[in-house]
Design a protein around this nucleic acid. Structure first.
Lengths: 207, 207
DNA sequence: AAATTACTGTTATTTTAATAACAATGTTAT
DNA sequence: ATAACATTGTTATTAAAATAACAGTAATTT
């Protein structure tokens, strides 16, 4: 394997897996491409194409084996050892993210949170210890944290990203409205709520 | 105008405007395409192309007039009367969204929040009144709210989307991890944090 | 046994988005 | 005055993603 998968396929694989886990807990062990498609409101062709790209093949007339497919997707998007994640900034958004994750069985473990407000630090949130930002670089290095979620206000985001980069982070998910600049070896995903809301507004206006 | 703009251009316009407002408050009244590009970490060609698409033209050697460009973008993405927005579900995420918005001068006004937990209702959050979900459909109709942000847990998202549709909502921004199905006349934007984090993890693993 | 059906897997086509190439032109330098 | 420069606006090209078309085939029906 290790053919390069399209970005969008990777996104959908994550969604397929979630849907498949649901299916499984409903006691269903086989599923057709069009059933997956319905769950995600996309087309069956797209599902089959994605599954083709990851090299799995179903059986005619029976569809895909749910367990197998979950495993294959896991092999592709998870690492064996798991990856450690830190959340920077535990305002409402930071806490929402930690809440989303708690209980989810995944190879992504949120192992630390950081905040610059001493009132918030040295406590546990959703099972995750929150440290003062001063210790961020040190802890990230020592713990081998590879992924960071930035949920600080825009004005601090840039500095945080710099520090994270220096501490050797490998991937950043940025929720702040401030576009970041990181070296090419750091994977960056921007996630801008305000833009998305304005986009919805634009298309509503058009329609 | 009213040529149909590419999706991605619409997203960037929103970001250009934010950057331009910043520029303006820094006392700068003209800006080059490459300066905008640097702020957003994209290319200057892309900026010029987007600006071409909205029909604005700068002046050679001086670049774009910041005020004019802000206005033009506003004409395209805002409506004259503004649009009313509701936030459904005020857990951490819902509150984060309301916090992001408070103070932002925009034509999008969050005018109501809804929650099914009576402990949270009949209070004001970030200046926005929160009502019980029972009143959702009624208030949305009466107030003429056209856009909804869904920030409820996945298991309730579908029902909420149905109700919103029935109440005549025009656009939905869905933060729940559950993919929604809405009629074609409702514009839907999905926004799935878990997927995005898994995507980052995948590309980190690859690198 | 032949035809039909209901699926998968794959290639071909179209659509959308990004990038590159470059012509046009006012400004500055010589 | 001429040449070099810096910048815009636009067209052409490439890349990425989605969709369509369809071949293959086991199961089912006739």
């Amino acid at each position: 394997m290790t053919r390069k998968l399209p970005d969008k396929t990777v996104e959908r694989l994550s969604q397929y897996r979630r849907a498949l886990l649901n299916t499984l807990s409903g006691g269903k062990h086989h599923i057709f491409s069009h059933e997956i498609a319905n769950l995600l409101h996309i087309t069956a062709v797209q599902v089959r194409r994605d599954i083709m790209l990851i090299g799995y093949t179903g059986t005619l007339r029976q569809g895909y084996d749910v367990n197998e497919l979950i495993d294959i997707i896991g092999k592709i998007i998870d690492t064996r050892e798991g990856q450690k994640v830190a959340v920077i900034g535990i305002g409402n958004l930071g806490r929402a993210i930690m809440g989303y994750f708690s209980g989810k069985r995944t190879r992504l473990n949120i192992v630390a949170a950081f905040d610059s407000n001493p009132d918030k630090t040295d406590k546990i949130y959703a099972g995750v210890p929150c440290y003062h930002s001063d210790k961020m670089m040190e802890i990230i290095k020592n713990e081998g944290i590879s992924i960071a979620v930035i949920s600080v206000p825009g004005e601090f985001a840039e500095k945080v990203a710099e520090d994270l980069t220096m501490a050797g982070i490998k991937g950043i998910l940025n929720f702040s409205p401030k576009p970041l600049n990181v070296p090419a070896h750091v994977y960056l995903q921007e996630f801008d709520m305000l833009t998305m809301l304005e986009k919805v507004a634009y298309f509503v206006k058009k329609s």
